[in-house]
Amino acid sequence: MTVNEFAKVLELEQLNIADGDRKINGAYAGDLLSWVMGRTAGDNVWVTIMTNLNICAVASLADVACIVIADNAEVMKEVTDTAKNKNINLLRSPLPMYELCVNINKVI
């Protein structure tokens, strides 16, 4: 499944789509950045409620396919701007993390 297909089927808000054709190969949920970097695999969807600027560096370095912000957590403009500059797919959902992950599990 591609990021575009993933965003569409789960009705996610597209804060930035840098590479919608990127393939997804799994998912990981977590907010502790080093924990995420230690456990996530490349091309994963990363689900988090963390929205500070450092998520862009983590997503880029850990090479995740996209970030999905749960719970409609507020994302500052500088974060979406950085996602654009660093070519990071950044999505958002109003669902809490658990419900969002359950839904993700149904589609990937």
């Binding site: 970097m37 230690g38 490349g42 500070n52 600027l53 450092n54 560096a57 983590v58 880029s60 370095l61 850990a62 090479d63 660093k86």
Partner: peptide, 29 residues
């Protein structure tokens, strides 16, 4: 907030040099 710029720069350079994604990921992290 700018922490990680050196790592991101290295990642780009390694990608330009044609290294495998997993090698790049390990070095970057």
């Amino acid at each position: 907030t700018s922490a990680g710029e050196a790592s991101v720069s290295v990642k780009k350079k390694l990608r330009q040099l044609g290294f495998a994604p997993e090698i790049i990921r390990r070095v970057s992290i």
